[in-house]
């Protein structure tokens, strides 16, 4: 019995398929979901969302939101989700550098520092996801 996975953002349905396993970036760390998992609701952090299906693995970048696991149905509601091939690695590298410079330069207000750190984390997730795709080729 496969898992039915849906990844939905306010703009679109990013992913919908029957899969064998998912590994999600939960707020408390990565967690794997197999069929017949106990009902679970977790907040998601920014991170790699891995989907395993028939020996192949696909990776999405997700940023925040929730995952609801009930029976063999997994629903991921996230603000932003991107397929690896949608990620512009160059743009992510630039974002990483910009955020790093901002943090190193210091003299940021608390809110700005938080924003810079979040931007850095997002850029790193994007880079990891797009990196993974390149290796697989």
């Amino acid at each position: 019995m496969p898992l039915h996975l849906e990844v939905i953002t306010p703009e679109r349905r990013v992913y919908e398929d029957d899969v064998d396993m998912v590994v999600a970036p939960g707020s408390e760390g990565y967690l794997g979901i197999l069929p017949h998992h106990a009902p679970l609701l977790t907040a998601l952090g920014p991170g790699e969302f891995r989907v395993k299906k028939g020996g192949a693995e696909e990776v999405l970048a997700v940023f925040g939101g929730f995952m609801d696991v009930r029976g063999d149905r997994v629903v991921v509601l996230t603000d932003v989700a991107e397929h690896a091939e949608e990620i512009d690695a160059q743009q992510a590298r630039e974002a990483r550098e910009k955020a790093q410079r901002a943090i190193e330069a210091g003299a940021l207000s608390a809110a700005d520092e938080l924003r810079a750190r979040a931007a850095l984390e997002h850029a790193l997730v994007r880079l990891r996801v797009s990196e993974r795709r390149r290796r697989r080729r």
Binding site: G26, S27, E28, L31, A38, P39, L40, L41, T42, A43, F66, R70
Partner: peptide
């Protein structure tokens, strides 16, 4: 009668959903 697992905990999850 499901026993839901919440991460980190029900109040936090409800508070953000």
């Amino acid at each position: 009668p499901l026993e839901y697992i919440f991460e980190p905990d029900p109040a936090t999850v409800l508070g953000s959903v």
